[in-house]
Each structure stands twice: as structure tokens, then as C-alpha cells.
């Protein structure tokens, strides 16, 4: 940043490589954020539908509780 005189413009090949890398990163980031949005939506739905507190005997019938 402090020595602008040394910096030459990027060649076309370099620019292409840089752009390709950025595009790839953006794509992955987009996928992760999209998946997180879906996950948080699903969590919200489950939480809203859930009964207020876990009680014994709630939900699917299971085996005798052992600790």
C-alpha cells in the first residue's frame, strides 16, 4: 500500500485468475449463507411448534429412562 510506484497493472491472465478465485469464493459463501438461512428458518418453525418445555412422556414413546 505504501509503495504505489512499484505496482504495475495486472496482466489479463492475472486478472482472470483473480476474478475466478473471487467468483468461486463468493459462490461458496452464497451457498453457506443460503443454507444457514434455511436452517434458521427450520429451527424457528420447530421451536414455535414445540411445547413450552420438555416434559417426561412428551413426544415419541421411548424406553424407560436410565441415567
Amino acid at each position: 500500500m505504501t509503495q504505489p510506484s512499484d505496482i504495475r497493472p495486472l496482466t489479463t491472465a492475472e486478472t482472470d485468475a483473480l476474478r475466478a478465485r473471487q467468483r468461486e469464493r463468493n459462490k461458496v459463501m452464497g451457498l453457506i449463507l443460503g443454507a444457514l438461512a434455511v436452517l434458521f428458518f427450520a429451527i424457528s418453525i420447530v421451536k414455535i411448534a414445540e411445547k413450552p418445555k420438555h416434559e417426561a412422556g412428551e413426544g415419541v414413546a421411548t424406553a424407560p429412562v436410565h441415567s
Binding site: M1, Q3, D6, I7, R8, L10, E14, A17, L18, R21, Q22, E24, R25, V28, M29
Partner: peptide, 16 residues
């Protein structure tokens, strides 16, 4: 940031 070779292209790291 590396200043040893200002000509070198500093690429952002690959997501992999």
C-alpha cells in the same frame, strides 16, 4: 502483507 516482491500477485485464499 508481503513486500518482498511487489510484482507477485497476492491471491485471496482458496475456499478449499
Amino acid at each position: 502483507m508481503s513486500t518482498a516482491n511487489p510484482q507477485a500477485l497476492i491471491m485471496p485464499a482458496d475456499w478449499r
